[in-house]
Simulated scan of single mutants.
Amino acid sequence: MTKRLAILGSTGSIGTQTLDIVAHAPEIFTVEAISGGYNSSLLIEQANRFRPKLVSVAEKHIADEIRSQVPTGTKVLYGDEGLHEVAASTDAELLVTALVGSQGLKPTLAAIEAGKHIGLANKETLVSAGHIVTEAAKRKGVSLLPIDSEHSAIFQCLNGESVKEVSKITLTASGGSFRDKSRAELAGVTVEQALQHPNWSMGSKITIDSATMVNKGLEVIEAHWLFGLDYTQIDVLVHPESVIHSYLEFVDNSVIAQLGNPDMRVPIQYALTYPNRYATPTKRLDLAAIGKLHFREMDFERYPCLRMAYESGKQGGTATTVFNAANEVAVARFLRGEITFLQIEQVIEETLAQHDNTQNPQLEVIYEQDAWARKIAAAMQF
């Protein structure tokens, strides 16, 4: 019997790699629904290849445009309603949440309430509302299966182990596009330079986040919620080769790590097939060919965004929501050429400085603070 999947963000990096796994194992997976935003041509291609029952796009005019170009019987929706339907209203057993940014929160919560297991690639969902999402998953008895390579690594290392016996976990970081540049050298970097990640093939937003180390900060906050660990138990280490995806240290000083080539299809497939493993369309790791692995301590002065992520996480409440929202706006402004690379961190820091934190916020407060942070970050002038 095949596993039925729905995918939010099927035309993005995680979404396309998820469908690549499905294409290599049609006897294991079927696709019930997909959402694809604005990339109508790719979405049409995916719909005709995988024949989902439901397709969702960003806006009505796109839905009207593609309706005649998808298979007969495939329903086409758009906007928030479309995301909700893809997430919660099909026969899918597992939802892959691969949307970019905090827009993944509402449909993920809808899927949890509908009893769907979650393949979580949208880290902003836990960053913005970790206490609500994890409580809902526990109440509904559904699994939050991590797709990020770092969290998948920790998840795999914990197989058969008790998290109570873990003294700390370490998330590895490639260092991003500018890992070999000093602070002074970052002053004039371009968007094109920032988008040249040395190891991973990712979307533009997450690639910029990798260069600022915001992405690792979001992963630290996500790890706190996924594994129930205190922030003092979560470390970050720069590892340029991205072969050790993360590791954990037990109270007896034993260390278990998960290794592999930097290919997102491995953690994606593990989330799709958990607790089973199957062959993947990826290359084997050859440590002899790699020869050496390198590591260096994290420098919080070089990467102040990671420092702010830790600080926001320790404050709790709406601080992490504001951190994430300010960053999303700042990255968008950088990509449009409105601000410089180093001004991304200034936008985040100044937005956080103006924020009045609310502890244990309800969902409506989270949305209010998210909107407030976006307004402040968008209006900030330099």
Rank of each mutant, 00 (worst) to 15 (best):
Q17Y: 03
K216F: 00
I147P: 14
I28F: 03
A326T: 02
L8R: 14
E113C: 11
K138E: 15
A373Y: 14
L218W: 12
L5H: 03
S143K: 15
L229G: 04
Y38K: 15
E27Q: 14
A353T: 06
N159G: 13
V236Q: 04
S152M: 00
G79S: 03
S41N: 14
Q369C: 05
A92D: 09
E81M: 12
A289Q: 08
L77W: 02
T321V: 08
P262L: 05
M298Y: 10
G160S: 01
F155G: 10
E297F: 12
F295S: 11
H239Q: 05
N48V: 07
S143G: 10
T134F: 02
L43Q: 04
K164Y: 09
L293Y: 05
E364G: 10
T16V: 10
F50E: 04
Y278G: 00
Q269V: 09
M298N: 11
H224A: 08
S40G: 14
E124M: 06
V22Y: 06
S41G: 11
V236S: 02
P52D: 00
T232K: 15
E81T: 12
V22S: 03
T358Q: 10
I256D: 06
G316I: 13
E345R: 11
L19F: 03
A153F: 12
T90I: 00
Y38A: 15
V163E: 07
S89Q: 15
V251Y: 07
Y303I: 02
S167R: 11
V76P: 02
E165D: 13
Y367C: 08
H197K: 04
G73S: 02
E113P: 04
L186G: 11
G36W: 02
N122H: 10
A325W: 01
Q269G: 14
Q103A: 15
I118V: 12
A173T: 04
D230I: 00
V191I: 04
M213Q: 09
H84G: 02
I154F: 06
T170W: 03
Q103C: 14
A25C: 13
E219T: 07
R183A: 11
S149M: 02
G36K: 09
K75T: 15
E113I: 11
A257T: 01
V255E: 10
I244D: 10
H131W: 09
Q269I: 09
P107R: 13
G175W: 02
L105D: 08
Q346N: 06
G36R: 08
F295V: 11
I256E: 01
E241L: 03
Q354N: 10
Y247D: 03
I21A: 06
E350I: 09
G119P: 07
R4T: 07
D80W: 09
Q381K: 13
T11D: 05
I339W: 03
V163R: 14
L285W: 00
K123N: 00
L285Q: 01
A194G: 13
T207C: 04
N357M: 05
C157E: 07
A87C: 08
A309I: 06
E27R: 14
K168G: 01
V22Q: 03
N159P: 08
H224P: 06
V331A: 10
S177A: 07
T30M: 11
E165Y: 03
N276S: 15
R296S: 09
V163L: 12
S13G: 01
